[in-house]
Design a protein around this nucleic acid. Structure first.
Lengths: 335, 335
DNA sequence: CATGGCAATGTAACCGGTTTCATGAAACCG
DNA sequence: CGGTTTCATGAAACCGGTTACATTGCCATG
């Protein structure tokens, strides 16, 4: 494994010149540049990233803060994989690697410093945060420390922090409009955890569209869940006595749970109750009769996150407003 | 951001002593050790990983080789996320970070070196390979270079390379036995790409169990797909003329596709045709009437991969035989 | 009481790059 | 033609750690 010194010696130039060939090739004469590049290829020279990071304090690594501790909420969501793939691909295209950060061991498992320490030790250039709404103090510590941050579906702002989100309010409106168009009048909804931003936005959009249509949503027609299937099932059971003709579930998993409750009650979809979800996860297309849903652009989210972090690394200020991606109605058999 | 020199000065000791406090605390006297640790906490000293890596050539990072280039196969599989979470958690517990490697930009996108170069530049200690069966030359380059490797569902061996896999053959037998127990005699199967190891093993196990039961599998009762839904649908269409009473699909996605073809043919599940899948992905539980399947232990795979890589980093030789995790029959409505 | 061994620590070389500053040669200018 | 720029390059400090080796003081030993 040849070092820069070795290469410099073989080329009969100084290490500084070799360094320049790789970093600022325009200031080295075409002749030596060529010579050095040829020789580098011949001996298989690869600049050592640790040494480079040590000298420049830039690592070309973006940290991923994703707390997969099973005691914590939010770590699993069936479309995170799609987002992750898009994020990783887009970063790769820029030559950036994605470092999935382990919480620092020096700090305790609940320490506010557990991510910040890992970030600082590795000179990570910026971080992407996947945290599903629990305003974890360890995440806030990153924002406070002014690490360049991009949060997914989380409303964080700061001089170095921005967020990416789907147009949740718009999606809520899409859902409402769709049900109204189908002629429904007794409409109920299953929301996510009310304290989370996406849940609040979806509900707000949904409610606003209904109100504008002259069919304001009664509080009794709102049940909340935790995004996961069982909670959708339970919420639907609570709503059944209100005998709605249509239900908007703010997440597809909850929608599937609700469908199960509807079936168990001996009712038919969409004949007796229509249902519309949110997210467009894989199962939505597979569960009969097909779940109508408001699709999030998962690939778009991942890509936008990569673009946002890259822009910040290049010196752009963090946009104060979240980057909002459009949602789209996918009509299937359930409405 | 204080350096080791700064800390040493404040403690009135040499940098070597400070270094020892963090690396070999047992050889420094309790008094100074305590003093240094206290002072370190006070000034928020964090050892710089790049400097450490430069000096030791160990990075405490495990590389993840997962080619998410959409032109290549195998990058998406609905349960990769579960494996990834388990892998990351298990590595985190050992203080290891997971670096999702971007293909090296210096090498061309199809270069055999594209992962190896990235690995070498970053002094990654070992790699985990997710590659779904396409014996990518760039992956082989890692094996050849004797980078410690753990491959998932891929039969790679070498002095520094081992693999983790579910007991695919055993799973195939489980499926066959289950169908036999249910009294089926006209049994067909949808396999994965025949050249991939998991597909071959599942088929082999399935076939062996049938043969032992005196019901050898006819070649005409075998159709193959590419793991994804549409191919299962198409394969089932090809099998329908054989009028099987039971079908084993070697992957749940294909099974769901097959179910669709069965329904479209006006047949009922399990009344007319029973179907059993493999994997136990999320949808299996959700698609009516519930897909009986052979479950893989996704969390187990991720955890085993972490353990294998850790063992190799600690100096154990790479096990020549794959680590095989048990599969389990999950009975649902489809059989 | 000299001596050898051990425990604790310090000194300094080294890991492999980047970058500031200095230098020499060539080009440019009036 | 002397003086000033400009361009290409080199020398050396520096980034922040680790570690081989040297040094010191102390204690047990013969």
């Amino acid at each position: 494994m040849s070092s820069i010194k070795e290469l410099a010696r073989r080329c009969g130039v100084s290490v500084a010149t070799v360094s320049r060939v790789f970093n600022t090739p325009e200031i080295v004469s075409p002749g030596t540049r060529r010579h050095v590049l040829d020789m580098a290829a011949e001996v298989g020279y690869l600049p050592n990233e640790s040494a480079r990071t040590l000298a420049t304090k830039k690592s070309n690594m973006v940290g991923l803060v994703w707390d997969t501790d099973h005691r914590r909420p939010g770590w699993r969501h069936p479309f995170l994989q799609d987002i992750l793939v898009a994020l990783k691909s887009a970063l790769s295209a820029q030559g950036l690697h994605l470092l999935m950060l382990a919480p620092d061991r020096g700090a305790g498992p609940d320490s506010r410093q557990r991510f910040l320490r890992a970030v600082q030790r590795h000179n990570v250039d910026g971080v992407v945060i996947i945290d599903n709404g629990s305003r974890d103090p360890a995440v806030l510590a990153l924002v406070d420390a002014e690490v360049p941050c991009v949060a997914l579906d989380l409303r964080f702002t700061g001089p170095t922090c921005t967020s990416i989100t789907s147009d949740n309010a718009g999606g809520g409106r899409l859902a409402a409009q769709h049900l109204i168009d189908r002629g429904h009048h007794r409409i109920a909804t299953i929301t996510g955890p009310p304290e989370t931003w996406p849940a609040a936005e979806r509900l707000a959009g949904f409610r606003a569209a209904l109100t504008e249509a002259g069919q304001p949503l009664a509080d009794a027609d709102i049940a909340s869940g935790d995004w996961y299937l069982d909670s959708g099932y339970a919420a639907m059971k609570r709503l059944l006595p209100r005998s709605p003709t249509a239900v908007f579930a703010a997440g597809d998993e909850m929608a599937v749970g609700a469908m199960r409750a509807i079936h168990e009650a001996g009712l038919r979809i969409p004949g007796d109750i229509a249902i519309i979800g949110f997210d467009d996860i894989e199962v939505a297309a597979l569960v009969p009769p097909g779940l109508t849903t408001v699709a999030q652009d998962k690939t778009g989210i991942g890509t936008a996150a990569a673009e946002a972090i890259v822009a910040m690394l290049l010196g752009s200020p963090a946009p104060a407003e979240p980057t909002t991606l459009p949602t789209a109605l996918i009509t299937r058999g359930s409405t």
